[in-house]
Design a protein around this nucleic acid. Structure first.
Lengths: 343, 343
DNA sequence: TTTTTTTATGCACACGATTGCGGTAACGAT
DNA sequence: ATCGTTACCGCAATCGTGTGCATAAAAAAA
């Protein structure tokens, strides 16, 4: 069925030379006559020869492939990260193998297993929400496998992290709301076991403190799922139960922010006149919704590309993971749109 | 540095048996004593043995890896497709190698090259906007490589397609707008060289015809980029230049639909009271924007999973591509929300 | 012509796993 | 004692490529 791919041996047979000569000729090794090189290259062209990367991988114990493990592909942020990863990997001649864990620890572990079988040169990981123990990662690190974590990063030694300055982003967002005259600011937080959530909450608290606004525990709500429905429900309840009512929402992600806006509208409040809202991530839809949603932008593409550059440098031993800064922190940017600016 | 992965030979050496015995013991071949099997498996466990998939690929000329080529990762529709692909591939024990072409033909070709070097077992492709000649694909097909195209499919022989019923979706959307009392319906079409665009336009025209509404060429506008800015601009112009003004917009994608809505609002029209809008794709944000956007849903996850099932069946020779239906058409579903329903 | 040097090429093995075939014990039967 | 059978297991080749070492031929030096 399948027309066999031409191999070095085929070229060798056609030209009545040994396969080692062909191999060397193709790579312009010294010690091969120009005449032979020419003939070999011609024949390679003619037979449509393509080196077998599998055989090469076996020989060199290098696959020129990196494994990417993320919670979900269908997520604007992660898809931009993937885009950044793919871009850099491609330009540097590496393949990208992708698996999503769907936030399951078991899936995370089995993905690593198959990737190890496939001799990945390194890993890019954002771990699942279920993951609380990082044995499976630190074991790999100890065995010398390069791993760069991004977005969600574990606190284990030897790893390199690429993250955004969640603290500063949350601080800026909260500060902005305060400066717009809002003072009873709710924080719709993310799962507290994720460091990013903790950092954002810390930024929120610090900004309040900075401006002399007391932190009220009842204004800090954990949204475990981060969906718009969840945020909608929580927001509706808060608006009813707390008095005086909250006058602003700083959400851990844009989806939750949208849920909050809807709930506010349903409750008869105008955004941003009555209630200000700021999200986090700067998803695509932020600029096209009405009112447009202010959000803290985290450049997913740069996270992906930066993490990949570091990983490949590590793989190619251009850097030493023990001597460089273990955390790369990219800056966030608060994009102020209509949802948070009182007119 | 890297702790070497244990190989079959390591197990063999430890146990003073041959590597072939180890191989057979691990696979429960007959002709190996239970005692030996037990010892081999114990040692494998102890040494943390993991079969080297690369070596296996070389031996069997099978990599258990499929190559996915898509225009862009950062695109809600494609990310859902990827999710479907990944899900099926993982459950059937295959790896997924991903590349994006960024709509460039050159990138598409070079991706195929590296994938061929890496001995992919098959391909899933949605080609770039630049691609008008399909030589590079038909060549592969002739060589016996399985390729399943999805969403954007070429008209070449031997390929299998997985697409959605764009025609029916567009027809339903247009019909719905007509039944809501709209009659001067603009179609913001996609690039006319893509078959999906042609089909949607055909559905639009047929629905008009069905209800006795004359087709006006000035109401059919091609949006080559499909961005909200582009649609915004075009819509604003149409509202000014055409008299009597259009009273509805059926957009080729949701982003364009959002641009149209914004333009309508800016021009002082209310959606859906004055102007009805329907999009295509059912992106995530459709339900959370205001007014919520009616859209034709195309189930990306199912497209991805279906295409992958077919591809793997083909690879594993469970199906014969010459005898089965070359096109799998998945149904679309019109989701009616507020943007198109007159109150 | 003989010896040395250069040039060009081939041999053989390695990478890790699989597998057809052959070999060697042990045991029972004749 | 000899043969046949059975149960286990090892040898060696294979997949495609790269590379150290040997080697042959050719050219240069003596």
């Amino acid at each position: 069925m399948r027309l066999e791919q031409a191999t070095i041996k085929d070229i060798a047979r056609e030209l009545q030379v040994s396969s080692s000569t062909v191999s060397r000729a193709l790579k312009d090794y010294p010690g091969i006559s120009d005449e032979t090189k020419r003939k070999v290259k011609e024949m390679a062209e003619k037979l449509n020869y393509r080196p077998n990367a599998i055989a090469l991988s076996l020989r060199k114990s290098r696959s020129f492939t990196i494994g990417v493990i993320i919670p979900e592909v269908v997520h604007f942020f992660f898809s931009t990260v993937i885009s950044g990863i793919e871009e850099v990997a491609f330009s540097r001649g590496y393949n990208v193998i992708l698996t999503q864990t769907n936030e399951k620890l078991a899936r995370e572990k089995s993905s690593i297993d198959t990737m190890l079988s496939n001799q990945m040169d390194g890993f890019l990981v954002s771990y699942s929400k279920e993951t609380t123990d990082f044995q499976h990662f630190s074991k790999l690190l100890n065995q010398g496998y390069p791993i760069v974590f991004f977005d969600r990063v574990p606190e284990i030694s030897g790893a390199i992290h690429v993250i955004v300055n969640d603290y500063a982003g949350a601080y800026a967002a909260t500060k902005h709301l305060i400066q717009q005259g809002f003072s009873r600011i709710v924080h719709l937080a993310g799962p507290s076991n994720l460091k990013i959530s903790q950092e954002r909450t810390r930024g929120y608290k610090d900004a309040l403190h900075e401006f002399g606004i007391p932190f009220l525990p009842e204004l800090l709500v954990e949204c475990t799922q981060g969906s718009d429905e969840e945020a909608h429900k929580i927001t509706a309840e808060l608006l009813k139960s707390i008095s005086p009512r909250p006058d602003a929402f700083f959400a851990n992600n844009d989806m939750a922010a949208m849920g909050a806006i809807q709930a506010c509208k349903s409750a008869g409040f105008a955004v941003p006149q009555d209630i200000g809202v700021v999200g986090f991530s700067n998803w695509q839809f932020c600029s096209i919704v009405d009112p447009s949603l202010s959000s803290v932008a985290q450049n997913g593409f740069r996270i992906g590309s930066t993490a990949t550059e570091i990983l490949l440098d590590w793989i190619e031993k251009k850097i030493n993971p023990d001597t460089i800064e273990p955390s790369v922190v990219l800056e966030t940017e608060l994009l102020v749109r209509k949802s948070s600016v009182r007119t």
